[in-house]
Design a protein around this nucleic acid. Structure first.
Lengths: 194, 194
DNA sequence: CGAAAACTTGATTCCGTTCAACACATGTGG
DNA sequence: CCACATGTGTTGAACGGAATCAAGTTTTCG
């Protein structure tokens, strides 16, 4: 309902990987609650207000109202699409592109949730959080952010991000918004009445 | 219906990331067909036989028979769980662990599909495919496989994989099968009648 | 049988890590 | 409201794991 949360998993060597950042309006934990066994952790990033929904109620809802069930299924599909892009990001892009890519993603996602604009938004992740989302060290994230800033692509004061040149940042970050399936989100948020 | 396929995405720098390998029995392309826009590629790994199902029929089926719809939703959730683990694998494990982890995953998944056993299975991926799944180069995959072999953890002749010591391999690969949600698969494959 | 694909090996390079120290902000209890 | 502790961000130097480049060899398959 308010605040930010994230999902992550910790490897045996102590490394942590963050998979997703969630904001107000997101249904955060469908995965762990619908499948019986949890396979990852959900954690608050800031102080948050949450609404708890019993897993059973979700299952019931999906059964009783197929369209709602379908909407939740779609949500899961979009979720998976974002996971895929993050895997690509972590696996096949260098630090510079990875970092730029993440910034681009939030420049688009936060406005959809009514939080900031494409060129100015607040993202309460520390550099260590960023490191764990990008599979880098916080030291290298720091250097990479500085590099992007000195190139005039972004500015940052504390946790406020300003995107100076989105098009250029998108090019650097090899960013293509298709994977976010934003059209789908619009549709769910503002359903057509028929 | 037979053969192997995989899903992947290509970054702007030419790097390819493989997300998943599919085998007979898998519903491969729910993601691209249910969401309207494709955000990744599906490709045959071997000669394959496939059954084509119109997206509309799937949507209809999900709407008309909620339990089937639910089953497909669960499938998507498990899919996403595997993506998460792969992200962790690529992001936070070194080449040795990554490679061992992949071997472990298939040692469990292939038997479920009735293809080989935990200790002996055929996986028709070239080292280049492995490289793109593990976010390494094929050169490094080659060296890593040799290392695992010389440690006596696996053997390999062509595409046949023999797991000598699963427990040890699982330790090296930081492998915990929870993310596969195999109990769930069992349930779907052999549904209870009531 | 011959060409292409896949695999192997060695030498070198580089991106990101590691380690370590320090600066600055944040916040809390006394 | 200060004193102190902790968390976060910054910087530098050295190291290392995997990439790159290049040249083989072996396998596959038409």
């Amino acid at each position: 309902m308010s605040g930010y949360a994230f999902r992550h998993k910790v490897a045996g060597n102590g490394g942590r990987q963050i998979f997703s950042i969630h904001m107000k309006g997101d249904v955060v934990d469908l995965h762990n609650s619908i499948l019986r066994r949890a396979d990852h952790n959900v954690q608050a990033l800031t102080a948050i207000d949450v609404a708890l929904i019993p897993a059973l109620a979700i299952r019931q809802l999906a059964a009783d109202r197929p369209l709602v069930g379908q909407a939740m299924w779609y949500e899961t599909l979009v979720d998976a699409a974002i996971f895929r892009e993050w895997t690509l990001n972590v696996g096949r892009r260098d630090a510079r592109a990875r970092t730029a890519h993440l910034r681009c993603e939030f420049a688009l996602r936060l406005p959809v949730a009514g939080l900031g604009s494409q060129s100015d938004y607040v993202l309460p992740m520390t550099q260590e959080h960023l490191a764990d989302a990008l599979a880098l060290t916080s030291v290298h994230v720091n250097r990479t952010l500085q590099a992007l800033q000195s190139e005039g692509l972004i500015e940052r004061t504390k946790r406020v991000v300003r995107v100076i040149d989105f098009a250029k940042l998108a090019r650097v970050g090899d960013f293509d918004d298709r994977y976010l399936h934003l059209d789908r989100i619009q549709e769910v948020r503002r359903p057509r009445r028929n």
